[in-house]
Structures are given as C-alpha cells and as structure tokens.
Amino acid sequence: MADATPGLRPRPVSPNIQLDGGIWRWHITMAASIFHRASGMALYLGALLAMAWALSLAAGPDAYGAFSELAGRLIGRIVLIGLTLAAFYHLSNGIRHLFWDAGYGFKPRTATNSAWLVILIAIVATAAFWAVILFTGAA
C-alpha cells in the first residue's frame, strides 16, 4: 500500500500526519496549553532555586553573598529572567484556566484572544519587572 496508483485520489490520512495541505494547523490555544505545562515544569525548578535562596539566607552572609553573586552573573540573570517569564505566564494563564473552570471563555474566538492576551501580558510584565530591577536605584 506504500505507493499510490496513478490516477487514483490519495488515500485520506489522519489529521496529525497531514504534513501539508491538510485540515490540521497549529493553533495558538494549543501553544498556550503546551506553554502552561512547560512553564509549570520550569517553575518546579524555580521553586527549588527559591529553596536554595532560603537555605543560603539561613546559612549566613557568606552563603547569601555567594548565591547573590551567582544570581547577578549572566547565567544567573538568564535563568531568573526565564523563570520570571514562566511565572508571569503560568500566573496569567492559570487565571484563564480558573475562568474556564467557572464555565467562562470557551468560545473559540474568546479562547484564541485570551491565549494571545496571556502571552502578551507575560512578555510585557517580564520586561517591566526587569526594567524596574535593572534600571532603578540599586542599594
């Protein structure tokens, strides 16, 4: 059944394997759902980093200084900015989920718009948050 006989219409295939010209396409609501799970997993690690911050604070000034120094480096900044983005995204999309749980926002158009809104909020809030940290008076 591998090669199609010329003159015959191509056999119908499942939507998930229609590579082009099929009825399947990427939806922002799917991306929003995947991002929610991915950001949740990232925040799992973020919570463990928050635990490391608390451990360093309890251990004393030297340990806290080492943690702060690491957080201030480029790699630390990248991780923290990524976690902030994950936090704002998971937070706002979580509120979207709570609206769904209450029975609101299921119309396809509403769900699509709210998906874009949540992504926009996450990016803007993350940018604003780090603008405040990096460009306001450091003590």
């Binding site: 200084g65 940290i133 306001t136 003590a139």
Partner: peptide, 8 residues
C-alpha cells in the same frame, strides 16, 4: 524587587 536591591 526590593530583595534584589538589598543585601544580606
């Protein structure tokens, strides 16, 4: 934000 600006 304030913790990031502060020290131990």
């Amino acid at each position: 934000i304030s913790l990031a600006h502060g020290d131990y």
